[in-house]
Amino acid sequence: MQPHPPEAHRTHRTGWLRAAVLGANDGIVSTASLIVGIAASQATQHDVLLAGVAGLVAGAMSMAAGEYVSVSSQADTEKADLARERKELEENHPYELNELTEIYIQRGLDPLLAEQVATQLMAHDALGTHALEELGISTQGSARPLQAAFTSATTFAIGAALPLLTALFAPGPFIARAVSSSSLLFLALLGIVAAYTGGSSLLKGAVRVTFWGALAMGLTAGAGALFGAAV
């Protein structure tokens, strides 16, 4: 019998995919909303572009800092849990063996087989086995602060550049309309790409991001028109 080729799974993509989609989505939505809101206040095209550039730079740095701090906190928690588990394995190995055995029994193995599996796995990699089975920490899913920060900042900047370029080339009176319509198209494409990469529904992915993007731009345009008229 010929061996089957390894199955292709997508779970290893969740870390960078989340950061990439979040960054690009925020870049498009926040910058497009900012541009549409400023344009709705009857500002000049120069002022609109200036606000867009400022939003791109500030947003990219904010995304990088936010992701780094958030994921660093997750990484610190994982390290603390692993250090505690390592100490428990050194001080009370039999108890940890029984604990792992109970986990496998609860998953459906009979007690004798569960103990054999736990013994063999702990002999091979006790800490790695307990990290995965007890703490839910795996090598593929472990926190990577720098990767998350760089991915979020880069994808935010790319996403923000799309409405900004549209505002640059659109005629002054039509900036708001051009940016909002093109940004909705960009968001739909982003949702489709993200859904395809993650193996989920393309339609659902597209509708999900375009709905919230349209809502954000609509509310910001209303605020810009209201306060612009008041000023």
Rank of each mutant, 00 (worst) to 15 (best):
E134T: 09
A194P: 11
M122A: 07
L112Q: 09
L22A: 11
R107A: 08
L164F: 12
G27R: 12
A143M: 12
L219K: 09
S181T: 14
G222E: 09
H4G: 03
G205S: 05
L113C: 04
G159I: 10
L34E: 02
S180E: 12
F227C: 00
L165D: 02
L50V: 13
A83M: 05
A51I: 08
E7K: 13
Q140L: 04
A216Q: 13
T139Y: 06
A149K: 01
A221S: 13
S183W: 07
Q45Y: 05
T166D: 00
A195I: 13
H124A: 04
T197R: 15
S201W: 07
E88K: 11
V21K: 00
L112W: 01
A126S: 15
G228Q: 10
T151S: 03
Y104D: 04
R10D: 07
M61V: 09
T210K: 07
Q45T: 09
E7V: 11
P163V: 12
G198D: 08
L189V: 14
S182T: 15
A230Y: 12
Y68W: 12
H46E: 14
A223P: 00
F150P: 01
P111A: 15
T197L: 15
A19R: 01
E90I: 06
M217K: 07
S138E: 04
Y196I: 11
R208V: 03
V71A: 01
I35G: 01
G108H: 11
E88H: 12
P145W: 02
T210I: 09
G222K: 07
E99C: 05
R18K: 15
E133W: 01
L185R: 09
T151A: 02
G224I: 06
A20M: 14
Y95E: 10
M61A: 13
G213S: 08
A153M: 10
N98H: 12
E90H: 12
A214S: 08
F186E: 07
T154H: 03
L127M: 04
R177V: 09
A229G: 02
G224K: 11
S41E: 02
A83Y: 02
A51N: 06
P5K: 07
L184E: 06
G172S: 14
Y196C: 07
G37H: 06
S62N: 14
Y68A: 11
P111T: 11
G159H: 13
A60S: 10
Q116N: 04
G136L: 14
A118W: 01
L112V: 10
Q147L: 10
I103T: 10
L132T: 11
